[in-house]
């Protein structure tokens, strides 16, 4: 049986697809057979972030409609042979995804895969609903910013009421906070909500903080998940997150301001 993870946020532009690509790659690199699915029907982008946009032949909707088999639609990642991508359809038909169809695809994938990462679209429409409906774990990607925090809280409400686990009175979805685009220097100046502030408001288990980083744009420019940039702060943050998720102890990093040379010489500690 696979573990199904939804990467969700409510708000757009907070880093869901970046996160989905990074953690799927991280899990696969740890030796777990992983599939990552783009639920953003009509606005496919995971393929671009994963660098496989020119290898898309069939998509998620083709599989649901029986026009292609799962094996035909799954794209094997070029960096890791344990990672497979199921791209979203570019159709404009809003009803292309059905609960029954999605459930069937996830069931089939579960037989063969250890982890299934569902990259949710923004909003609370059908795609976002179906991305989280079957989930076992939810990675709530939040920016330290008022609208993102509010939308995350709204998603938490939906996760605990509109999911399969909620409807069938099973153990609830495990929810984790991933705080992204974090800028410790701005937090220190009082211009940005801190990790503690966001946790006080959302009361979620913190899986990790991803610092605002130039490496995220560089990675998406080249179509390589940022976790493969092992020297970058964001890459390391995602590697920590994957390890913590798998139960390894990793102290939190990137929460405090990096000290420059001056700070190191004169800052004492």
């Amino acid at each position: 049986m696979a573990r199904i993870i939804v990467v969700t946020s409510g708000k757009g532009g907070v880093g869901k697809t970046t996160t989905s690509a990074a953690i799927a790659m991280g899990l696969a690199k740890k030796g777990h057979k992983t599939a990552v699915i783009d639920f953003d029907v009509g606005l496919r982008n995971l393929d671009l972030i994963m660098g496989c946009e020119r290898r898309v032949v069939y998509d998620f909707v083709n599989v649901i409609n029986g026009e292609a088999t799962l094996n035909q639609a799954l794209i094997k990642d070029k960096h890791c042979d344990k990672l497979f991508i199921l791209p979203a359809s570019q159709t404009r038909d809003k009803d292309a995804l059905t609960q029954e169809g999605v459930g069937k695809v996830l069931d089939d994938l579960s037989k063969d895969f250890k982890y299934i990462v569902c990259d949710s679209p923004a909003g609370i429409e059908k795609g976002a609903h179906l991305a989280m409906y079957f989930a076992d774990d939810a990675f709530v990607v939040t920016n330290p910013e008022v609208s993102s925090v509010r939308d995350s809280d709204r998603m938490l409400g939906l996760l605990s009421s509109k999911s399969r686990r909620a409807e069938q009175n099973e153990e609830p979805i495990k929810e984790y906070l991933l705080l992204s685009r974090y800028a410790p220097d701005r937090v220190k100046l009082g211009d940005m909500l801190s990790v503690d502030d966001v946790q006080d408001i959302l009361s979620l288990h913190l899986l990790g903080v991803i610092p605002e980083s130039k490496s995220v744009l560089t990675a998406s420019n080249s179509g390589v998940p940022v976790i493969l940039d092992e020297k970058s702060d964001a890459g390391q943050a995602y590697a920590d997150i994957v390890s913590r998720y798998l139960g390894e102890e990793r102290p939190h990093r990137f929460i405090d301001e990096k000290k420059g040379l001056f700070g190191k010489l004169f800052g004492g500690k």
Partner: peptide, 10 residues
């Protein structure tokens, strides 16, 4: 600070 204002509002 604007961050504490944000926290209070949220």
């Amino acid at each position: 600070s604007s961050a504490s204002l944000a926290k209070e509002r949220l």
